[in-house]
């Protein structure tokens, strides 16, 4: 690590420490009512208690299950639809306006539909998660497919590659960096929607625990659970980046500049 990036990391930690300190001091100094914002130390104690309960781990498992299955479905569907639509110009033109219409619909607006269809089951969570993350992947894959170098494609054609071989050896590797970006974006969105669904619909998971903590006045526990969802988000993003770097070592954005 260079001294500069170490400095940046230290600054980042200092900032986080500062935030925790401010949250500790605000209620202690009487600036805010500690019924609404308990000091950091109380939140930490509540978190330690939560970590010891089976219900907490069950909730983490439920949230991650909804997140993972939903993300998997969204990525698979986004990649397949993206490649098919992107590779066929007629389909691309025919679907462009539909995609632009469906994409901005907030997943949350589908909550009534989800409840109608699945009640408080996992299905509700999945519907929201898949809907929100699918577009993230699809749009990236469409960009990726459009990025295929015409010379690379002509090379493949001149060597009489089959249609499938051109997808496999030219289109897919070109689109791959975009796919990873899509997965990374979708992974974050999927977590947001998984927690939202649990919170609003009452499907089992961290979101539901947060709602329960709130209604039963366990404010430090509520903050502790919120912090856990944040930590999950950070962990997911970090894991996605590591996965991306490992798989794309040949790619320009990862390999760095090489003198020609």
């Amino acid at each position: 690590m260079s001294s500069r990036s170490r400095g940046t990391a230290l600054l980042g930690l200092a900032g986080l420490g500062g935030l925790l300190l401010v949250i500790e001091l605000l209620p202690r100094l009487g600036l805010v009512d500690d019924a609404y914002l308990p000091p950091t130390s109380e939140i930490a104690a509540a978190l330690a208690d939560e970590l010891g309960t089976a219900a907490f781990w069950q909730a983490v498992g439920d949230t991650l299950t909804g997140w993972a299955i939903g993300l998997l479905i969204a990525v698979a569907a986004g990649v397949v639809v993206g490649i098919v639509v992107g590779a066929v110009p007629v389909l691309r033109a025919a679907t462009a306006s539909t995609i632009e219409f469906l994409r901005p619909i907030p997943s949350v607006a589908l909550i009534p539909l989800a409840v109608l269809l699945y009640g408080t089951d996992l299905g509700s969570v999945l519907l929201l998660v898949v809907y929100a993350s699918f577009w993230q992947v699809l749009v990236q894959v469409l960009y990726g497919v459009a990025d295929v170098d015409p010379i690379a494609d002509e090379t493949a054609r001149s060597f009489r590659f089959s249609g499938w071989a051109r997808v496999r050896h030219v289109l897919w590797p070109t689109a791959l960096p975009y796919v990873f970006t899509g997965i990374r974006l979708a992974a974050s969105v999927a977590l947001v929607l998984a927690v939202t669904a649990e919170l609003v619909i009452g499907a089992p998971g961290l979101g539901k625990l947060i709602a329960v903590a709130q209604t039963s006045g366990a404010v430090p526990d509520m903050y502790a659970l919120i912090a856990v969802t944040g930590l999950l988000g950070v962990a997911i993003n970090l894991a996605a980046r590591v996965f991306e770097r490992r798989s794309l070592s040949w790619h320009q954005s990862v390999r760095g500049e090489v003198p020609a």
Partner: peptide, 19 residues
């Protein structure tokens, strides 16, 4: 593209697959 024909492009950097 006929069989038995191979082509070398001017843009070697784009014709070779970097992956």
């Amino acid at each position: 593209p006929p069989p038995g024909l191979a082509m070398v492009f001017q843009e070697y950097g784009r014709s070779l697959f970097p992956w």
